[in-house]
Simulated assay, not measured.
Amino acid sequence: MSRFIFMILLITAAVIEVQCQGVEFKGKSAILTCSNEPEAEWYRTTDDKPEKLQEKNITYEASAEGGIVSGLYTCKSGSTKIHFYLKAKVCENCHELSGLMATGVIFSDLLLTAGVILIVYVCAQKNTSNTNQRAPNQRSRDAPQPPNPDYARLNPKTVSKDVYAGFS
């Protein structure tokens, strides 16, 4: 049970969004948002050399190269620097999954699984309870067995005592 709770906490923590600054994926690009100041300078670091980008907005749209948005982006706004390290696969029809949605999907899956287990248990109980309450045998114990010519009883007076007497 503790592993399950730990797994839910990890999933919830993994999908929580950053409130002050953040990254939003839309289509084949990532939109980086800096602090609340109106202007910001954006830099992209490649091979340990910062390259100044032309945009001076609070947001920067990083385009994908080969379906992957990657790199170290830095936002300088006043005296604060915010670093964004990205390495994400993006696609045109991708959608983000919020923490509430992920928790809801996991919880509904657990409820559905518990429902199936309960139905199987109830059906199994009905089948086992019927086997214990069978109808009594209709034939009385003293009634003679029906005759069967293939399996007639041996008459001790006519039985031969030879070893291979029955194989002729």
Score class of each variant (00 low, 15 high):
53 L>N: 02
70 S>D: 05
113 T>C: 11
62 A>D: 00
105 V>C: 06
152 A>V: 09
46 T>W: 05
41 E>W: 06
56 K>E: 10
145 Q>K: 15
136 P>A: 11
32 L>M: 03
70 S>Y: 07
99 G>C: 01
146 P>N: 08
132 N>D: 08
159 V>L: 15
89 K>P: 02
45 T>S: 05
23 V>D: 00
133 Q>A: 10
144 P>V: 03
138 Q>G: 08
162 D>M: 12
75 C>N: 00
69 V>M: 02
23 V>N: 01
112 L>S: 15
110 L>V: 12
45 T>A: 02
75 C>S: 05
44 R>M: 10
61 E>L: 04
20 C>L: 11
80 T>P: 01
31 I>L: 05
50 P>S: 04
93 N>M: 05
27 G>Q: 01
63 S>R: 15
124 A>I: 07
20 C>N: 14
153 R>L: 15
54 Q>A: 15
104 G>Y: 03
86 L>H: 01
137 N>K: 10
101 M>A: 12
72 L>D: 07
112 L>D: 07
47 D>L: 05
24 E>G: 08
107 F>M: 10
102 A>C: 02
105 V>F: 09
150 D>T: 13
49 K>E: 10
94 C>W: 07
131 T>A: 12
22 G>M: 03
71 G>M: 01
40 A>L: 01
99 G>N: 02
73 Y>V: 00
145 Q>H: 13
136 P>T: 10
117 I>Q: 09
73 Y>C: 02
92 E>M: 05
124 A>E: 11
93 N>F: 07
43 Y>E: 04
18 V>R: 15
66 G>A: 05
24 E>D: 12
126 K>S: 12
32 L>K: 01
17 E>I: 14
102 A>F: 00
161 K>T: 15
128 T>L: 06
126 K>F: 06
25 F>Q: 06
107 F>S: 10
100 L>R: 03
123 C>E: 09
79 S>N: 13
134 R>V: 05
28 K>A: 09
21 Q>G: 08
16 I>Q: 14
46 T>Q: 06
128 T>W: 04
101 M>S: 11
51 E>F: 09
103 T>F: 14
68 I>V: 15
113 T>E: 04
133 Q>P: 04
27 G>K: 01
135 A>T: 08
100 L>A: 13
149 P>G: 03
